[in-house]
Amino acid sequence: MIAESQLLVAWDAEPPLVAQHIHAHPTLSEAVGETFLTLAERGLHQH
């Protein structure tokens, strides 16, 4: 989040410009949690 915020400040970006960009998801904690759910064969995004 810090890197993204720093880049936006350096751009002097306005909200409509920022809204056009993809913002990374999931967070690190969500990714780790999903990894362990997947390893336990209970992943939220498994088919």
Rank of each mutant, 00 (worst) to 15 (best):
M1I: 05
M1N: 10
M1F: 07
I2E: 11
I2A: 09
I2N: 05
A3V: 12
E4Q: 04
E4K: 06
E4D: 09
E4R: 10
S5V: 04
S5C: 08
S5Y: 03
S5P: 00
Q6I: 11
Q6K: 11
L7C: 03
L7D: 06
L8I: 02
L8S: 01
V9P: 00
V9G: 00
V9E: 06
V9K: 09
V9I: 07
A10T: 07
W11A: 07
D12L: 01
A13K: 02
A13R: 03
A13E: 02
E14K: 15
E14M: 10
E14L: 10
P15C: 04
P15V: 06
L17F: 12
A19V: 01
H21D: 04
H21G: 05
H21Q: 14
H21W: 11
H23F: 15
H23E: 14
H23V: 15
H23K: 15
H23T: 14
A24S: 07
A24E: 09
A24Q: 08
A24I: 04
P26F: 09
P26T: 08
T27A: 06
T27G: 04
T27W: 03
L28Q: 11
L28F: 13
S29P: 00
E30P: 01
E30T: 05
A31T: 11
V32D: 05
V32Y: 09
G33D: 02
G33E: 08
G33N: 07
T35I: 03
T35S: 09
F36G: 00
L37Q: 06
T38Y: 08
T38M: 10
L39M: 14
L39H: 07
A40K: 08
A40L: 10
A40M: 09
A40N: 09
A40Y: 01
E41L: 11
E41Y: 04
G43F: 09
G43W: 08
G43D: 11
L44I: 08
L44W: 03
Q46M: 15
Q46I: 15
Q46F: 10
H47W: 10
